[in-house]
């Protein structure tokens, strides 16, 4: 791989162009393969497409760029602590819009750290919510039958099912 290449251009599934640095792309195996393909191919003008929409890809690249220095060189405890705080801020996003897309992108791009973070964020979302808020966020229909619901109400007096 030529050391002069510092960033590559990729296309999102909506056809927008994005730049990602070589060191950041190393966080994802599939991205890294694409990068090697681009660098070694004779036809350097070809821009690879990543099957992730633009809105999600912006976030994924932001995550990669932030985590790249640590992933590539190792970091001190204080850096790790700082990165943890950054992750929490990073995950404060409109859930319906983007969290599940990020989760699927992290899975598709084999990014363990982001995958774990997104799964944990989804799980932690439920803290302090009502049952109906959870259903709304996770797109779940209430398909307890009315008999089941009645039985549950009897078993859990005082608990809300809405």
């Amino acid at each position: 791989m030529s050391s002069s290449v510092e960033a590559i251009t990729v296309l999102s599934s909506d056809g927008d162009e994005f730049k990602i640095t070589v060191s950041a792309a190393k966080l994802s195996k599939p991205l890294n393969w694409m990068l090697e393909d681009v660098c070694f191919s004779d036809d350097c003008d070809e821009v690879p497409t990543i099957e992730v929409n633009s809105k999600t890809l912006v976030k994924v690249i932001e995550y990669c760029e932030k985590h790249a220095p640590r992933a590539n060189s190792g970091a001190s405890d204080s850096d790790a602590e700082e990165l943890k705080k950054w992750d929490i801020e990073f995950m404060k996003m409109d859930v319906k819009d983007i969290l599940f897309h990020i989760l699927m992108a992290a899975n598709y791009l084999h990014m363990e750290g982001l995958y774990d973070l997104a799964c944990q964020t989804a799980a932690d979302l439920m803290k302090g919510m009502t049952v109906s808020q959870i259903r709304k966020i996770f797109h779940i229909k209430n398909d307890f039958s009315s008999e089941e619901q009645e039985q549950l109400r009897r078993q859990h007096p005082g608990c809300s099912f809405d």
Partner: peptide, 21 residues
Amino acid sequence: LALECLSRLHFSLYPLASRVS
């Protein structure tokens, strides 16, 4: 992926989550 999310649920939320569906 859904299973992975629910696997990370804090146990104190089980009673709530088990009333979702």
